[in-house]
Amino acid sequence: MPLLKIGSLTVDYRTSRGTIRAVEDVSFSLEKGETLGLVGESGSGKSTLGLSVIRLVPYPGVIVKGHVKIDGKDIVRLPEHELRFIRGRKVAYIFQDPMTSLNPIKKISAHFAELIRTHEPNVKEAKALERAKTVLKDLGIRPERINDYPHQFSGGMRQRIMIGLATALNPDLVIADEPTTALDVIVQAKILDLLESLRNAYGMALILISHDLSIILERCDRVIILYAGHMFEHASSTELHRNPRHPYTQGLLQSIPNIELADQKLAAIPGSPPNMLNLPRGCRFWPRCSYVMKICRTKEPPLIDIGHNHFVRCFKYSRGRAKS
């Protein structure tokens, strides 16, 4: 049984200006210890998808269809009090901004004590703090700094502490939503190394959410490309890099600079992402696509299995053409 299995998940935001379908018909599964990257631009639904896994989609978001099974248990239908055993203990979430995700008036010790004792009420405070200190040491932070307040730490250190809080209860799955976007490149590399080493040490699975395809390709086993709420392509990183199939993925790969290439020519994707309140008919990408066909303007393409665990949502690969 996979650790996480998501099936035809659809999430709506019911706003006063109309319903925004932020995530539509997303299905994938994740095994223990695996690393999956969710890539997309703003508005692609990547964060909504991540938050759905722990059912934390903010108001007015609603999961309208589909299931999210963790160890076989569908959390979409779980009562709120049972979710507490999932959140933090089974699945932990790391948010983008380390400046706002720690409570500024509580010491780091209080953050850890609250977390540990909420989930394990029998643990004495002193014992919880002992454990917290070991965690800090693992993260490369001097244990005595547990008595400091968040503002006494740099952005990178705060993100380390967030990672410490997320992994303190040994969750099976950690979801990191743009964990390094607010950080400088050297700190970013260190934080991603840290996540990787924790994963190797404790065997947890990781979902890394980012707008930066470079990071995802470098760090993840598998990649899902999201666009306007749809899964456009799903493959292993190596496969996606060698054989990108969706015109959008191809466009993305051609528009990210690679410092190792001399005289690289970048190609821009024309147009801009669609308004989620007013999606184009047919494929969501057709107004920007250079391979657009007649069918693309009228029908939504299905997610097509093109072999080697590679899935693409594009009519170019439907029917006989996929196999050629």
Partner: peptide
């Protein structure tokens, strides 16, 4: 050198040696 070695490369098959800096 450290800065350049920390930049992610969009190629999963390329493994580089990173120059580690201590502290912040």
């Amino acid at each position: 050198q450290a800065l350049l070695s920390a930049i992610p490369i969009p190629n999963p098959e390329r493994k580089r040696k990173r120059i580690e800096l201590t502290g912040e």
